[in-house]
Simulated scan of single mutants.
Amino acid sequence: MSKLRVNAFTLSLDGFGAGPGQTLQNPLGVGGEDLHKWMIGTRTFRKMVLGADGGTTDVDDRFTVSSFDNVGAWILGRNMFGPVRGEWPDENWKGWWGDNPPYHVPVFVLTHYKRDPIEMEGGTTFHFVTGGIHDALDQAKAAAGGKDVRVGGGVSTIRQYLQEKLIDELHLAVSPVLLGRGENLFAGLDMLKLGYQCTEQVATALATHVTIKRG
Rank of each mutant, 00 (worst) to 15 (best):
K193C: 08
F45R: 02
I133M: 13
L76E: 14
N26P: 04
D138R: 14
T57M: 05
T204G: 10
I40W: 09
R62I: 00
Y113A: 10
W96R: 14
G131E: 12
V151L: 15
Q25Y: 04
N100D: 13
K114D: 15
M1R: 07
G82E: 12
V71Q: 09
A142H: 15
L11P: 11
V6C: 09
E183W: 11
R43E: 12
L110I: 11
E121G: 03
Q160G: 05
I118K: 10
E169K: 14
L50C: 04
G95P: 12
G122Q: 06
H112L: 14
W97I: 06
D34G: 01
E91G: 01
G153C: 10
A140F: 03
E91W: 01
D53W: 06
N100I: 10
N100P: 01
Q25T: 09
E169Y: 08
G98T: 14
I75N: 05
A142C: 06
N7W: 02
D190P: 15
C198R: 03
T44D: 07
L4P: 00
R5E: 06
G15L: 02
G82W: 07
V49F: 13
T23R: 05
R78S: 11
G195K: 12
E33C: 01
S2Q: 14
P106N: 04
G31V: 05
H104M: 14
D168I: 05
G17I: 00
G215P: 10
V177C: 09
D34H: 02
D138G: 12
N7D: 13
H36C: 03
P27E: 00
D148Y: 05
F81L: 12
M80L: 08
R181Y: 10
V155E: 00
G86L: 14
T208V: 15
F186M: 12
E91Q: 13
T124N: 07
M39Q: 11
L179C: 15
A18K: 09
H134Q: 08
K114A: 15
L194W: 14
G77N: 02
V202R: 09
